[in-house]
Design a protein around this nucleic acid. Structure first.
Lengths: 138, 138
DNA sequence: AATCGACTCATACTAAAGTACCAAATCTAT
DNA sequence: ATAGATTTGGTACTTTAGTATGAGTCGATT
């Protein structure tokens, strides 16, 4: 919000400055009105593109962010969530065990809990549900 | 591509027209140069936003659309792709068999082929790879 | 100090998933 | 029409996945 205000402030200031500059330039005869128009047009076209890109970029980031509240709401523990992430990447229990430096038994336990909490019968379903709940960063 | 050319053609034409109009308006004294500048600035700012939105929107559609060429490139048959979609939704072999009205054996065969062609060891990995290859509609 | 939740791990199962190989019916394009 | 790909299905087998249960450790809370 602060940023937005700042940007628009600078913008307004720039516009006023530009107007003053243009008046001076036209009066002194150093610049043709047409060229000034072209210059302004290009400048603001670029500005429009820039602003729109910024806002859409932020939108994208928000959309691909994980819903932390949902994770808490589901009762997923830290470790369980880590396992879920590994599951989503397509790793087997053995591989996850190696990545997290624990035994396969431990992973099986975690996976079972994840399945329960995500209301899934298989790991593939758990991943799909997790995706719909937006608790995966991809 | 054709569209792009058309848009830019119309755009160029509009710019030229605007310049002519501005010259006439200024000469006849009906319009102050400053106001003309403001008008042009706002117009092109809006245009920039519009163009950027359009391009990003298309990008989004493309991103969520299925890359048909990739499917062909991978050598995935129609049926195999159908099975892949069911897999991605988290269904078991038995469930997929019921959905597609064939035996579980058949599904196993298809799944094996899908795993080969997607270079995956497990179905979870196949789904993940498929997602990265953008051959899934979600 | 006792409790509770999270994490760890094991054993013993059952249930899916996946592989290998084969074989027949059906489609498709030359 | 016939070769090649696709689809279907089976048997037999190995490997993962998942369940159930119990239990020890550790840190935070009460």
């Amino acid at each position: 919000m602060k940023k937005t205000v700042l940007i628009f402030g600078v913008l307004a200031f720039a516009v006023v400055g530009l107007l003053q500059l243009s008046r001076y330039a036209v009066i002194t005869g150093n610049l043709q009105t047409e060229w000034l128009l072209v210059f302004v047009a290009i400048l603001f076209l670029g500005l429009g593109v820039f602003l729109q890109r910024r806002s859409l970029h932020q939108e994208k980031i928000v959309a691909s962010e994980v819903n932390q509240d949902k994770i808490v709401e589901l009762g997923l523990s830290k470790r369980e969530y880590e396992v879920l992430l590994e599951m989503a990447r397509g790793y087997s229990n053995k591989e996850i065990a190696d990545h997290l430096f624990v035994s396969e038994s431990t992973i099986k336990t975690h996976v079972s809990h994840v399945l329960e909490k995500l209301n899934a019968k298989r790991r593939t379903q758990a991943v799909q549900n997790a995706k719909e709940l937006q608790i995966l960063p991809f």
